[in-house]
């Protein structure tokens, strides 16, 4: 549904742009393609890597590692697994919900979800291409630390 809004917005503005200035519109599309083509190789590689990882790490496997009783070890495992890849929320939440049903703990799942979406070890090279080494590592390290803090508080709220 939201995707349609995004499409509507993009094509609406594109039409408006074309109406205003054809040359500029052609240039915008050229830039769009260039930016896409620039990141495509890494994207494709990451997609396959995530596919392999998700196939190996079944919900049963993960929840046996990050169960409600797993404590700090479970939190560390959840952070480690979550940090490896950057997974879109549309994949992450059904996975997280399945893990909760299989007996994973709330804190561990919150760490897992937050790190999945904010911390990406696999995508570090892509991020460094834009932000350099230092800013990239700082951002990911901070996101990791705060994911754990937020999860610990969240564990107290959600029972």
């Amino acid at each position: 549904m939201f995707t349609y809004v995004l499409y509507g917005l993009a094509f609406g503005l594109l039409g408006f742009s074309f109406f205003k200035d054809r040359g500029k519109t052609r240039m915008a599309l050229k830039k769009a393609w260039k930016s896409f083509e620039n990141i495509l190789p890494q994207m494709l590689g990451i997609i396959v890597l995530i596919g392999i990882l998700l196939a190996i790490l079944s919900p049963e496997t993960i929840s046996s590692l990050i169960g409600a009783q797993s404590g700090w070890i479970g939190i560390v495992v959840a952070a480690a697994v979550g940090s490896i890849t950057l997974i879109p929320g549309f994949v992450a939440f059904p996975l997280a919900a399945a893990l909760l049903q299989h007996g994973a703990g709330v804190v561990q799942i919150a760490v897992f979800v937050s790190t999945l979406m904010m911390v990406g070890v696999v995508t570090l090279p892509v991020e460094m291409k834009y932000f350099g080494k230092r800013a990239t590592l700082t951002r990911n390290a901070l996101a990791l630390v705060f994911s754990v803090i937020v999860a610990l508080i969240l564990g107290g709220i959600v029972k």
């Binding site: 995004l6 769009a32 994207m43 392999i52 998700l54 879109p88």
Partner: peptide, 25 residues
């Protein structure tokens, strides 16, 4: 793994065109 990769790819391709068009604009 192939199925998961393929699903991932389709999910991504569904949202990528408008993002990059907006980026170009």
């Amino acid at each position: 793994a192939t199925q998961m990769s393929w699903d991932n790819l389709l999910d991504l391709m569904a949202v990528v065109p408008p993002i990059f068009i907006l980026l170009g604009l």
